[in-house]
Each structure stands twice: as structure tokens, then as C-alpha cells.
Design a protein around this nucleic acid. Structure first.
Length: 477
RNA sequence: CGAGGUGUGGCUCAGUUUGGUAGAGCGCCACGUUCGGGACGUGGAAGUCGCAAGUUCGAAUCUUGUCACCUCGACCA
């Protein structure tokens, strides 16, 4: 019991202080370290490897839909950024400027990209002439910089890693189709690989991206009941095309503007993984993104044959990402370490097991210990990893569903926001005034208008005028 | 950007009220004993007390300025 207590001391419990729990997990799992640059984090091997797995899987899914990767400069000349009015207004307050180069003041200052719409548009204007050049389906993996007022590891940092897809299409229909296609690709990825269930929908006018005609979003619910926007997909219509003069000659020999989309996901996803799956012992990673899926922990490893056996098991499990912890720490230490790092499964192998031709498999998500004959090791590991992946999604979905509330009048709405962390489904009249009032009264914001609409009431939950849409509301990160 | 808080070995902090030789626990290094839920012994290394100026015989401690970080708001992926 005394040892149990010490374990808890290492990581603050989430019930006690969720923010501190988050910070403890991020540090203890060695995902990041703070750097000497304000608001910028160092991604350590454990953290970066998760990003690499996300990247690998997403990239494959993008390419399966015809997307190609490119790389654009990290600097944007001020004149280029200025071209689309809403876009500049949206981003100007949070860009970093480069004013000197080679010891000389630059004739035109350059911003460090906060996002690359303007660069892609400038590029597209040069390379698109004919309908035969369309569509253009480009994506880039890079980092962007936004000078945020306050930062938190993964959730909001000054520089962050992401991908940004930018497409140009001949027709509005095609652009809309691509916008929604990518949103669903994101949501499917999050559910299948990250085991995080998503609410899919459209942002209100107030919440949409600077310069977009429409923004779609996927929203996830964190363990503390707060919402996190996990990915967005924008339909730009021909707004940017008009600002940047991106025209093509159509089959009918008429000059037409292209229709564009952009879509992105970021390292924030790692924050979502932490806050959806993590527990009081630390990180819990879904097997499909875990850099190490199985940690083999030899017991009494100084004894004859134990380390050799552990190595032998690792050799047999080469279809999985497996490591042996042969450091000279005590077994208890290694267990805790494996748990804090969120490694989905550990295999304990000691003299007694070798004697009995067995090993103990322990699930990180449930703590369940399973004794397995070494004869069926490979198949059992595969089966259990699959179950972990599946059950983590089910558990997260259960949490999401049990934290969605319905409000049909404003008193009810305010009561839920104040007392029940989670999403609130409520009807809305479509007016920004009501969004502002709700935010002012409760700090909750409109998260999205879900694709799956329901008619919960006839009137807006805030003003009582006829309702137009059902909206998910919540406090957001 | 508003309100509050914190800066002392790698980490968590004590010491500051009342100025007088820089401390503890954990971690780290070496050796030995251990090993089925964060083992133990012995020895050792490691700190310009965030930075700058001032007061003083003397500053971690008092004064002024400054920087960074954290929490909560406003803004955002």
C-alpha cells in the first residue's frame, strides 16, 4: 500500500487537478520538454514517434484519395498575405515577422507562415491555365507559427507541426465534395486509429475560418468534459481565387475561377489522445499509434536464462513493435515506467514462467493480467492488442454519449453548463447575437452544427425565436 | 492583453518576516547486496539563489527595474 501511494504521488490525480494531471503525464511519459523559446516545446522521442505514426497513417489515407505532397516556403511576403481581406484580419494579430536578413533591413517584411493559403494560391495562379490542370490535390507536412497569448503543450503552442491540404477544383460541387470527404477521412482516422469518437459537423459563421465560405469540424470530448477541435476542413468557394486571380479556361473556352478547399490536423491530436484515454497512472496509447506496443519485462533478469528468454520472445513477436526493458531497475519500477508511457501491453517473464512455459500479459487499459502459454504467444498478443484498440474506442464512445445533454430552455442550458461537463445539444435561431450572449453568460461556445440534425424544440434555446439548427455547445480548449 | 501566483543543484521545495559561511528529499555517478508493483547500504559529484542596478562592512533575504514560467479570463488548431 505504501508503494501504491508513492505511485500516485508521481502523477497528480485527474480528479484533484486535471490541468496538473495533464502536465504531469506529458512530462512523465517524456513526450515533450519545455524549450528556451517562449511557448515552444521540444518533442522528445516518445512524443515524436506518436506523431510519426499519425503522419504515416494519415499520409497513406490522403494519397489513396489522389493527394500529392509538396513543400512551400516558410516565409510569406507581407504583400501576399494582404491579398485576401478576411484572411489577413484573422491572422495578422498572431503572426511573427522577419524584418532583418543578412544584417540588413528587408525591403518588404516576411511573416513566418501561420498557414499557407496565400502561398498555395499564388502558386496555383501560376500553374493553372486549363480545366485539364484541375483538380490540384496538394498537401504539405510542415510547422507553422502563431503567436498565441497563452500556450499549453500540444494543445496550443507557438510553433506546431501539422499537415495542410490545399486543393483547387473546377466546380463548386467538386470543392464541397472534397471538403466533406476530407472531414470524414479525418473522423474515420481518429476513430479507427486513435480510438477517439468524433462529432462531425459544420461551424457557425462566427466560428468559421478566416476567409472560408464554410468550415467543417470534428469535435472530441476530453475526460474533463471539455471539447477539443481535432481537425477542420474548409470550403473556400471562389473567394481566394478571386483575390489571387486563379482562373482557368473551361471546355467552353470561358475563363472561370477555381473553387478551393483546405484542411488540416495538428500535433494537438496527441493532446486529445492524452486527455481522452489517459488515467491516473499516466498515458494510455491505442495500439495502432503506440511507438512501442509491447514491453517485455524480465523478472530477476540476473538469473540464468531469463534475459535470453526475453530476447527470444521479442524475436518471435517481430510483427509488433516490441522492446525488452533490460535496464537494471527493479521490476516494479519498470512496470510503472511502462504504465506512465502508455505502452498498451507488457509481458512479464521470470524464472517461474520459464519453468511453466508461460508468460504474464498485462493490459495497460484495464490492468487485466492474462497468463498465456508460450506456445500461443503470437496469436494471443495479436488478439489482445486488437481488443485493446476496439475496447478503448468503445469506452471513449460511452464517455462521450453519457456526457451529451439536451437543453430546451435557457435556464436548463445554464444549469447544465454550470453543473454537467460535456456537450449540450440545443436549438439555435442562427443569430450571432445569441452565440455571443451564450458565451458571455456561460463561457460555452457553439462547437458545431452536426450533420445528424434533430428537432429538439421549435425555438432557439437563447432568444426563443424560431429555431433553424441544432447545435452542439460546450466549453472548449 | 487583464487578474493572481512562482523563480534557490536535474526535479520538488525549505530558508526571505527579523540581512551574517547555501540546506533537505528525490534524481545522478561508483562499488556491493537485491529483483513477481517505483529495493537497500557505503561513498561521491553537482547551486554566479532568474537577470540588472541600488542600499549596506556584509544581500537568497531589503529597494527599484526587468525577464521567464504557471493558473484563471479575453483570442485561437
Amino acid at each position: 500500500m505504501a508503494k501504491e501511494k508513492k505511485l500516485v504521488e508521481a502523477i497528480t490525480s485527474m480528479e484533484e487537478d486535471f490541468a496538473q494531471w495533464y502536465t504531469d503525464v506529458v512530462k512523465k511519459a517524456e513526450l515533450i520538454d519545455y524549450s528556451s523559446v517562449r511557448g515552444c516545446m521540444i518533442l522528445r522521442p516518445n512524443g515524436y514517434a506518436i506523431w510519426e505514426n499519425i503522419q504515416k497513417e494519415l499520409d497513406a489515407r490522403f494519397k489513396a484519395t489522389g493527394v500529392e505532397n509538396v513543400y512551400m516556403p516558410m516565409f510569406i511576403p507581407e504583400s501576399l498575405l494582404q491579398k485576401e481581406k478576411d484572411h489577413v484580419e484573422g491572422f495578422a494579430p498572431e503572426v511573427a515577422w522577419v524584418t532583418y536578413g543578412g544584417g540588413q533591413e528587408l525591403p518588404e517584411r516576411l511573416c513566418v507562415r501561420p498557414t499557407s493559403e496565400t502561398l498555395f494560391c499564388d502558386f496555383y495562379a501560376n500553374i493553372i491555365q486549363s480545366y485539364r490542370d484541375l483538380p490540384k490535390l496538394y498537401n504539405q507536412w510542415c510547422s507553422v507559427v502563431r503567436w498565441e497569448k497563452t500556450t499549453r503543450p500540444f494543445l496550443r503552442t507557438t510553433e506546431f507541426l501539422w499537415q495542410e491540404g490545399h486543393t483547387a477544383h473546377a466546380t463548386a460541387e467538386e470543392a464541397e465534395e472534397r471538403t466533406e470527404q476530407m472531414l470524414h477521412l479525418y473522423a474515420d482516422f481518429c476513430e479507427e486509429v486513435l480510438a477517439i469518437p468524433m462529432i462531425r459537423g459544420k461551424k457557425t459563421e462566427k466560428e468559421k475560418f478566416a476567409g472560408a465560405a464554410a468550415t467543417y469540424t470534428i469535435e472530441a470530448l476530453m475526460h474533463d468534459g471539455k471539447a477539443l477541435q481535432a481537425g477542420t476542413s474548409h470550403n473556400f468557394g471562389d473567394g481566394f481565387a478571386r483575390a489571387f486571380n486563379i482562373q482557368y479556361s473551361d471546355k467552353d473556352n470561358k475563363l472561370k475561377y477555381v473553387h478551393q478547399t483546405s484542411w488540416g490536423m495538428t500535433t494537438r491530436l496527441i493532446g486529445a489522445i492524452i486527455m481522452v484515454h489517459g488515467d491516473n497512472s499516466g498515458l494510455v496509447l491505442p495500439p495502432l499509434v503506440a511507438p512501442t506496443q509491447v514491453m517485455i519485462i524480465p523478472i530477476a533478469q540476473h538469473k540464468e536464462g531469463v534475459l535470453e528468454k526475453a530476447e527470444e520472445l521479442r524475436g518471435r513477436l517481430k510483427d509488433f513493435r516490441v522492446k525488452v526493458d533490460d535496464s537494471d531497475k527493479s521490476p516494479g519500477w519498470k512496470f510503472s515506467e511502462q504504465e506512465m508511457r502508455g505502452i498498451p501491453m507488457r509481458i512479464e517473464i521470470g524464472p517461474k514462467d520459464i519453468e511453466a512455459n508461460q508468460a504474464i500479459l498485462v493490459r495497460r487499459d484495464t490492468g487485466e493480467k492474462i497468463t498465456v502459454s508460450l506456445n500461443e504467444l503470437e496469436s494471443k498478443v495479436e488478439e489482445i492488442l486488437k481488443n485493446i484498440q476496439k475496447e478503448m474506442l468503445e469506452k471513449a464512445r460511452k464517455h462521450l454519449n453519457s456526457h451529451i445533454y439536451v437543453a430546451t430552455n435557457y435556464e436548463e442550458f445554464k444549469d447544465i453548463v454550470a453543473n454537467k461537463p460535456g456537450f449540450i445539444k440545443a436549438m439555435w435561431c442562427g443569430e450571432e447575437d445569441c452565440e455571443n450572449k451564450i458565451k458571455e453568460d456561460t463561457t460555452a461556445t457553439s462547437r458545431c452544427m452536426p450533420f445528424e440534425q434533430e428537432q429538439l424544440a421549435e425555438t432557439c434555446v437563447c432568444c426563443g425565436k424560431p429555431a433553424k439548427k441544432m447545435v452542439y455547445w460546450g466549453k472548449a480548449y
